[in-house]
Design a binder for these strands. Structure first.
Length: 266
DNA sequence: ATGGTGGTAGGACCA
């Protein structure tokens, strides 16, 4: 059983719905996490996804943030959760479900604005609380994926100009240490399990023709628990939707698993 | 790369 999993910051699902539907039609992923939907739940285009062959759960708000999980019909979404213990946050950045026997946690990590700001402190605190949640939650799910817009470039290899970005937001050591703290619970960055082209990014600023010049960062990640990672057969960035008219500033990231060795538990 | 754009709004904020 091949399972194709993707994560995409769509920067307004209202604007990007046609892109997402077209992309689902061509790529046919089994599981998709969306971030920055920017839609209240009552405005979520649930019917459009059902018509496309997907079940959806979502947690949104007006103007900012908002996350959703899609699963191809036939994969049930169970144990859905949009809030975690010890964090009362009106910002809708978290959604988790159990799909095909795998725990899927979809995150829109706080951006943080700039090192040293209140938003930066909120980011680090938010990551600490999410990490504590994962540590407890993963005891129940040996097969566990954390996906999303992490707003952290894990390493200098994920940055177009590491010198310019040194100690800046998305690249600072405390942010990277927070990401390492999650990985040290027992997760692999699936992208780095495979040989990749240098200068592979998932986000390019809208300004300064950054995409054309490949001035970007890799901040959209698919982390798989160690047990799951052994079944990962590929992980890549799909740059194509970033070339479409009026695109999101992020490209979708995708990974595939061959779960033939596992007994199907859904 | 330090806002040159874009989204949500309908001015300012967020990224």
């Amino acid at each position: 059983m091949v399972l194709k999993v993707a994560s995409w910051n769509v920067n307004s699902l209202n604007v990007r719905l046609p892109h997402v539907l077209q992309w689902l039609d061509s790529e046919k992923p089994d599981i998709v996490g969306l971030q920055e939907t920017k839609l209240q739940d009552e405005k979520f285009p649930y019917r459009a996804f059902v018509d496309q062959g997907y079940e959806a759960v979502y947690s949104g708000q007006k103007t900012y943030n908002g996350v959703a999980l899609l699963a191809k019909q036939g994969h049930e979404l169970r144990k859905v959760l949009t809030d975690i213990p010890n964090m009362e946050d009106p910002q809708r950045r978290i959604i988790a479900a159990e799909i095909a026997g795998i725990r899927i946690l979809n995150l829109y990590v706080v951006n943080g604005q700039a090192v040293g700001t209140d938003k930066y402190d909120y980011k680090l605190d938010w990551l600490e609380r999410v990490t504590a949640f994962i540590e407890a939650d993963m005891k129940k799910y040996p097969k566990y994926m954390i996906m999303g817009d992490f707003n952290i470039a894990p390493d200098d290899a994920d940055v177009h100009d590491p010198e310019a970005w040194k100690d800046q937001i998305l690249c600072s050591s405390p942010e990277r240490a927070a990401l390492d703290g999650i990985k040290e619970l027992g997760f692999k960055d699936t992208f780095r399990l495979f040989e990749q082209k240098p200068q592979s990014f998932s986000w390019w600023d809208y300004r300064a023709a950054a995409f054309r010049r490949n001035i970007g960062l890799r901040i959209d990640l698919l982390l798989a628990s160690d047990q799951l990672a052994t079944s990962c057969t590929g992980s890549w960035v799909d740059r194509e939707p970033r070339t479409w008219e009026r695109p999101s500033d992020h490209a979708p990231v995708i990974c595939e698993f061959d779960l033939a060795d596992f007994t199907q538990s859904s």
